[in-house]
């Protein structure tokens, strides 16, 4: 029997892995990747709640809004990664490193 609580537990573990990755890595790309892991965990939670409310008798739009929000998160994550990677490439051109500490000053 599939339990919502188990799925939510999986998502929280994934989220905390992402938090750990952001906190422990210094490489900008690794931090962005950990961020993606956190967004993915949130997607799993949204789909879980969507399925939960579908089983509680929600209507067509109500039952699928969790899945819709998941699609929105995916689209925003794709946009964010595009911009983030472009910024990392620009930083790398200037600093010759993709280390987070290298980009600590406002003056290029």
């Amino acid at each position: 029997m599939l339990e919502p609580k188990v799925v939510l537990f999986l998502a929280s573990v994934l989220f905390c892995c992402g938090v750990y990755g952001v906190l422990s890595r210094k490489h900008l790309i690794m931090m962005l990747m950990s961020l993606e892991l956190m967004l993915n965990a949130i997607n799993i939670m949204l789909v879980t709640f969507s399925r939960h409310w579908a089983g509680k008798g929600a209507g067509l739009i109500g039952a699928h809004s969790g899945q819709f929000f998941t699609l929105m998160v995916m689209a925003v994550a794709a946009a964010e990664v595009g911009i983030g990677l472009a910024i990392i490439v620009a930083i790398f051109r200037r600093k010759h490193t993709a280390d987070a500490d290298a980009a600590a000053d406002l003056k290029g």
Partner: peptide
């Protein structure tokens, strides 16, 4: 953070113990 999240999940009401029928 994980402990906090798991504490919330454990305290969810009993309706979260299984997915209902579609």
């Amino acid at each position: 953070l994980l402990v906090c999240m798991v504490a919330v999940i454990v305290k969810l009401p009993a309706s979260y113990n299984s997915f209902g029928e579609l």
